[in-house]
Computed example of a mutant assay.
Amino acid sequence: MDTLTLHLEPGQDLLRSVAEVAQEKRISGFLLGVVGNLSKASFQCPGRDKPTVLEGELEIITLNGTFDADGVHLHLSLSDGACQVWGGHLEPGSLIMKGADLLLGVLKQGQEAGQRAKTRLEIAVLPGCPWCDSGLRLLEAYKIPHKVITVDNDLTFQQCKQRSGMNTFPQVFIDGATVGGFDSLEKLQRSGELLSLK
């Protein structure tokens, strides 16, 4: 096993940052450790329909789970200002406050980590967009391999707009072709076509 350190700056999305590193480096493995804090935490508690969202100075206690080039599955526990502990399935929208350092345990890298079928679905998302977060949750719930394009600057926004002809997000692409937004993704899920992308 190899190890990889990942330093995150204020404002970065914790879940998406791990996913992007796994995609870019074509690695798979699990989280070994983390030190840092969040200004906003979004996590799914057992038995609840919607994610719980907390804001403030939130200290990360643990972050456990797995990652690979097709996605991540992480569980977070954290403490608020009253030393109350919260935790659940990590969701998009958990933002770094002052900084965070993660230690990743890398089991496979390169082609070996990407032996599964080529990722056919791409989703372009805006940070903080509720429809984007719903789209990502849908893909993760059905374990659909996908590439996330985080639209956090004007250049990326213009590239996505030119590619899709759309101003709204999320933007979903399958095999390079524009499918639509969240409504189109839901339609694929209802028809059963989404599962064919596994």
Results as ranks from 00 to 15, higher is better:
11 G>Q: 00
11 G>Y: 00
11 G>D: 01
12 Q>A: 08
14 L>C: 12
15 L>H: 05
16 R>L: 14
16 R>M: 13
17 S>W: 00
17 S>A: 14
22 A>N: 04
22 A>V: 02
25 K>Y: 13
25 K>V: 08
27 I>Y: 03
27 I>D: 06
27 I>F: 04
28 S>K: 02
28 S>N: 01
33 G>M: 02
34 V>A: 11
38 L>T: 03
39 S>N: 13
40 K>C: 10
40 K>R: 15
42 S>V: 14
43 F>P: 13
44 Q>H: 12
44 Q>D: 07
47 G>Q: 09
48 R>G: 09
48 R>V: 12
48 R>H: 10
50 K>G: 07
50 K>S: 14
52 T>I: 11
57 E>Q: 14
57 E>R: 14
58 L>P: 02
58 L>I: 12
59 E>L: 15
59 E>V: 15
60 I>V: 15
61 I>L: 15
62 T>F: 04
64 N>E: 14
64 N>I: 07
65 G>Q: 06
66 T>N: 11
70 D>R: 15
71 G>L: 04
72 V>F: 00
72 V>G: 05
75 H>W: 05
75 H>Y: 09
76 L>S: 11
77 S>V: 11
78 L>H: 03
78 L>F: 06
78 L>R: 04
82 A>G: 03
82 A>F: 13
89 H>Q: 13
93 G>W: 01
94 S>M: 02
100 A>V: 07
100 A>I: 08
107 L>W: 10
108 K>P: 01
108 K>Y: 07
110 G>D: 11
111 Q>H: 09
112 E>V: 08
113 A>H: 03
114 G>W: 00
117 A>C: 03
117 A>T: 06
118 K>E: 14
119 T>P: 06
122 E>I: 04
123 I>Q: 10
127 P>I: 05
